[in-house]
């Protein structure tokens, strides 16, 4: 149980294999729902939504060769649309890269690591509407930990994790953190 890389007091709830399987399943769900890769655009939300979107795109392309990451994968920075900017020191602005053909009349799949209050997704929906007018927007997250503060739900969830609001959910990815894992820490013992 005790991984040398897991901080004291944290427990691992998903391992690398779990994450991989979840992403593969989500990829299949997306294609099934969309009836193929046609008109699909996958946008990752920084920070950890970016590598997740990248991995999802690889899986989509593997299943459906018609999916072209070069024109169907991008990133969506939401910094300028956050509702909590004044609560923290000023944040650096990330880059937004939308495929050259834009997102008008496409089905956009937003990808993030954890769905919690829903405020990030609210900001992302606003950011998206500045970039174009998609036919539909879907949301894929690795973890849904509950405690929504806005009427927002995910369409594709890697893992539903019931948590206490005092707990901390930490997603680690090889690209950003050196390894794949989802950890929970803190809260009442």
């Amino acid at each position: 149980m005790s991984d040398p890389d897991t901080p004291a007091g944290a427990r691992e709830v998903l391992g690398a294999d779990d994450i991989s399987r979840a992403l593969t399943r989500i990829a299949h769900e997306i294609l099934e729902h969309n009836k193929g890769a046609d008109g699909l655009v996958v946008l990752g939300i920084p920070t950890r939504g970016l590598p997740l979107a990248q991995r999802l795109a690889e899986r989509l392309a593997a299943v459906e060769p018609g999916f072209d990451p070069a024109t169907q994968l991008g990133t969506l920075d939401i910094t300028m649309h956050r509702d909590d900017l004044h609560r923290a020191p000023v944040r650096p602005i990330g880059a937004t890269h939308v495929p050259d053909d834009g997102i008008d009349d496409r089905t956009v799949v937003l990808v993030d690591d954890v769905l919690y209050s829903g405020r990030t997704i609210r900001a992302a929906l606003d950011a998206l509407s500045d970039v174009g007018r998609p036919r539909a927007v879907r949301l894929a997250v690795l973890v849904d930990r509950g405690h929504r503060e806005l009427p927002i739900r995910a369409d594709h969830v890697g893992k539903n994790l019931p948590t206490a609001s005092s707990e901390r959910v930490q997603v680690m990815l090889t690209e950003t953190d050196g390894r794949d894992a989802v950890l929970i820490s803190g809260g009442e013992a």
């Binding site: 300028m80 900017l85 004044h86 609560r87 923290a88 020191p89 000023v90 944040r91 602005i93």
Partner: peptide, 11 residues
């Protein structure tokens, strides 16, 4: 943006 977006130090 850099002057106004973040919280003032006391906030």
């Amino acid at each position: 943006y850099l002057l106004l977006a973040g919280g003032r130090r006391e906030d």
